[in-house]
Design a binder for these strands. Structure first.
Lengths: 326, 326
DNA sequence: CTCTTTATTGGAACCGGTTCTATTTATGTA
DNA sequence: TACATAAATAGAACCGGTTCCAATAAAGAG
């Protein structure tokens, strides 16, 4: 392997000169030309580790995702990857596999890799998260969830819920079922739910039942099989498209027809919701945009500039076949 | 930041002793106990970069995936991530975004990160691939595709095709349509296709039409909209489940019913194929197993042990609602 | 044609570890 | 008790870069 020393020897200069040449310091035309040639000839590239030993950090951004098979995470990831590339940064992805411990652990692991910044897609923010973030002394950007006092980019969850609730209300339905997720998840379990409920609140002849289910397709499916036969609801709103898909499948299994027996809607804008029959009404989130903004912001943070503590992106209702007037 | 020097000073020993302590060299009970305490107290962890400077490689395995939104890639990824963790290795994921150039580029990038080994999910193996693999001097394991002279773990593609073909033949259909992908893809475009065709070959009253389409859902969908109205086929086999889903959607759009008008089958065992209606007959690939074996093998290679050049995993036909006898 | 000022350059120290060698200390054996 | 052998340790060199400082060379001013 060719090192800076080899280059220096070949060129007959000190290695500090080569280092300056590589990093844009003052070097004469003559030596620059000579080095240009030698570097090209030898195909020399500096050893990243030697560089990072002294440098405070690398040209890498670490990203922690909750699971590898999440549609939304992958959409965001793809966008972040592309944007980061434009800025000559490398993306280092680690998987927390739905475990809070692994999330924390990965923060430290990435810090050890001396990434310049960390983008964290968490589901909940615990004290341990805050402690880790404070300790690593690397900018951390939260994605999707809001963390008091931490830099955050998220979706307008409350508004999404409210939009969906209002849409449903205007269709004239009286009995609603909202399939939510655990409350510890602030973005989905609280804000999104609250938006829906607030929109549907007024009016005495309207009832909204809320049942808690899981992000997992399989679990939601099994629960739906139990709930559907007895529900009075003519409009079912699910906290995620994944849950909506599970309800759809359960309906098929039970031989119930949508939207004849009940309307169905979800959140997320997952690609599959437009493929199934009937296609499912959903709120489409701008994942690509989220990724783009996230990269802009983390790089700002990395370069020491301040950012607004919290940025929330708007979303859009997408009406499809699964919802009809009462 | 606390360094090995600090630890050494506190303990009143040389840093070489601390290094030995950390790496399991010979250290007396007394010093070991003292160091145990000091390390715990200070929360010291060695600087990875300093370690990697001398070490030939790190405890990281790099993985290059073709796209971030591929179901199969994610399944494999999840499994590899878990297995690698068990072995105290870190997984570094990079996305080639369907570009051959980026695949090559990522091989070099990962090499610069001094990963111990690289797992490459490529679609085709070019000369540039071989050149890069030879140059980086790091074990590279091919996943999914077979590369002459390179270490490979793949699926039994031909057998999968043959199984599906035989199954279809036994249902008594006469006219088949096989939606394939570009031939440069050896695993899917050649082997899988050949298996299907070979199974369906014999018999004079049987016809098989082959049309080439794309891995992309959208493109396959648009093509299906054109093909379906005029096809005579009563059994459509798609090279991937993704394509099968596209055909299903096109059928819905065109108001054609499956399996009444034609049977439909795919390959892959994607989760969504069991969710849609009708659920789609497919060949289920053991992604988890593939990941597990891949980790075993790459670690063998990393430790210098030889492996069989080519390992191919078996798969299994999964019969669902979308296919019926003629 | 000197004297400053500025642009280049070389050398040494350093980043935080690992590893080799020589030395000291402990242990076992005759 | 003396001697051989094994275990533990210190010190120095090294990995491949960056950075600081002093020295030299080139350029501009008087």
């Amino acid at each position: 392997m060719v090192t800076i020393k080899d280059i220096a020897q070949r060129a007959g200069v000190a290695k500090s000169t080569v280092s300056r040449y590589l990093n844009g310091g003052s070097v004469s035309q003559k030596t620059r030309a000579k080095l240009d040639e030698i570097v090209k000839e030898t195909g020399y590239t500096p050893n990243t580790f030697a560089q990072s030993l002294k440098a405070k950090h690398t040209k890498m951004i670490g990203m922690i995702i909750p699971r590898l098979d999440s549609y939304s995470a992958n959409e965001v990831l793809a966008s972040i990857d592309a944007s980061l590339r434009d800025q000559q940064y490398q993306l280092l992805i680690t998987n927390a596999n739905q475990s809070i411990e692994r999330e924390i652990e990965n923060i430290y692991t990435l810090a050890k890799q001396k990434v310049a910044g960390i983008i964290l897609m968490a589901t909940i923010i615990t004290e341990a998260h805050r402690k880790a973030i404070a300790e690593v002394d690397i900018p951390v950007l939260l994605l999707g969830q809001v963390g008091e006092g931490l830099h955050t980019i998220s979706h307008q969850e409350y508004e999404a819920g409210f939009t969906m609730g209002s849409y449903a209300k205007n269709l004239g339905h009286k009995k609603y079922l909202y399939l939510s997720v655990f409350k510890e998840d602030v973005a989905v379990g609280q804000l999104r739910a609250q938006g829906v409920l607030d929109a549907l609140k007024e009016g005495a002849d309207r009832t909204v039942e809320v049942i808690e289910t899981s992000f997992s397709f399989q679990e939601a499916y099994e629960q739906a099989l139990v709930i559907l036969p007895s529900t009075q609801a003519t409009f079912i709103i699910c906290a995620t498209d994944n849950i909506a898909m599970a309800v759809l499948k359960a309906a098929h299994t039970l031989d119930m027809s949508i939207p004849q027996q009940f309307s169905l809607a979800g959140f997320g804008g997952y690609a599959t919701t437009s493929i199934v029959t009937p296609s499912i009404t959903t709120v489409k989130y701008p994942y690509k945009e989220l990724g783009k903004v996230a990269v802009e912001q983390i790089l700002e943070l990395v370069s020491g500039k301040p950012m607004k503590e919290h940025i929330a992106l708007p979303n859009r209702l997408e009406i499809r076949e699964s919802t009809v007037p009462f």
